[in-house]
């Protein structure tokens, strides 16, 4: 037992000598700082009680620090918006428990604002600055019962994230056709204006 612990300690101490561990700061530093992000998304949910994954596709618009629009186009249309901390589902203020908490975290992930997630999750980084992966584990036992953990990977922007549920269910969301701009167009501002 003792020897094993000692081995671990030696390994951990020597580790930096062999591999340069990627830090959150390094990843955040090389992310594209442009505040407006447009992308297509494809989400696949793998649930134990389903014989095939649930697939949804659509587009998303993010204005960092302001709001997020999650516009599903298939299999049917729906429109979810988080504007300045308030969640709206198809134009109506939404009151589902944890709904806005989840959306806020989703917005942090998409914005690459990982430091903000640090107090809720234990974060581990791996890969290269140009192609990195983050593994997040909830610090809070309450959250951990619902969400086992999540991982995010990407390059100049986050490109894919995966949510792991306790009983083996998981969902994978992939972004494509990512476009970054410096200022939102009138239309984009309109889409994320308070109703």
């Amino acid at each position: 037992m003792k020897r094993r612990a000692l081995q671990w300690m030696v390994t951990l101490t020597l580790l930096p000598l062999f591999a340069h561990a990627l830090t959150l700061a390094e990843i955040e530093q090389q992310l594209d700082p442009a505040p407006v992000l447009n992308a297509e998304f494809r989400q696949q949910q793998h649930l134990a009680m389903l014989s095939r994954p649930l697939v949804s596709t659509g587009s998303l618009l993010l204005i960092k620090g302001h709001g997020l629009q999650w516009q599903m186009k298939a299999p049917f249309t729906s429109d979810l918006k988080l504007i300045d901390g308030t969640l709206y589902s198809n134009g109506q203020a939404d009151s589902l428990p944890g709904g806005d908490a989840f959306s806020r975290r989703l917005m942090m992930v998409l914005s690459g604002d990982f430091s903000a997630l640090d107090n809720a999750f234990e974060i581990e980084a791996s890969g290269q600055p140009e192609q990195w992966t983050l593994t997040l584990e909830p610090r809070n036992a309450t959250l951990k019962k619902v969400l086992h953990g999540l991982s995010v990977s990407g390059g100049r922007t986050p490109e894919q994230f995966r949510l792991n549920y306790p009983n083996g269910d998981y969902s994978v969301t992939t972004l494509s056709n990512i476009q970054l701009t410096d200022t939102p167009t009138d239309d984009e501002e309109q889409r994320l204006a308070r109703p």
Partner: peptide
């Protein structure tokens, strides 16, 4: 079911 947060089968 199709919300970005999804659901767990539990």
């Amino acid at each position: 079911l199709y919300r970005p947060s999804g659901a767990s089968s539990q």
